[in-house]
Amino acid sequence: MIETKPLLRRAAAMVLAGVARAITGVRPIWQGCAPSKRQRIYYANHASHGDFILLSTCLLPEERERTRAVAGADYWRKNRIRHLLARDLLNTVLVERNWVEREQDPMVIMLDALKDGHSLIIFPEGTRNMTDDPLLRFRSGLYNLAFARPDVELIPCWIENMSRVLPKGALLPVPLLCRVIFGAPVELTPAEDRHAFLDRARQALLELDPEHQRSLNHG
């Protein structure tokens, strides 16, 4: 029997990338690194469901195909439609965020995906940011991944405007121009502890935000 799921996924990815381009005219800005076929972990700010679609639209087609987004299982397994979308169409890596009730260790699941050769998109804030702050505090998953897989490049990616295009709770997107700004890889240094690393990674992402740059220049 021919496997239909990969085909279905590829078609879904193409359609989504087309829609994302038509609505947001999304452009990648390779500011700190170049597009590459190297295995990578892309970490980004998160305010909208469109975030990971926008990010993967900006990747090279081959890279897009093997890049999977890490998403909250509690949200995406809530009903069957969501689960079907996340598992079969979007090919997401589902991890349980609630550490009291969870049965599987998210680290194991993410490391397995890396072992299978996938690149990952992760949102280290852990949830969609609804505050006026540009970026929430980072969860430690990013540190654990950097510690376990120093060979995989960690790329900060600032997603611009998506929170305005499709804010939490909105059904239809407002067409606004978006950009994804890719920064220089962040590496864990040998002596660095969890907090210092997470702060530095967060700062590296924040510095890609043009708004943040502007406020620094004016303030």
Partner: peptide, 8 residues
Amino acid sequence: AALREYVT
């Protein structure tokens, strides 16, 4: 297209 650029 013009309105999209403007509102952005």
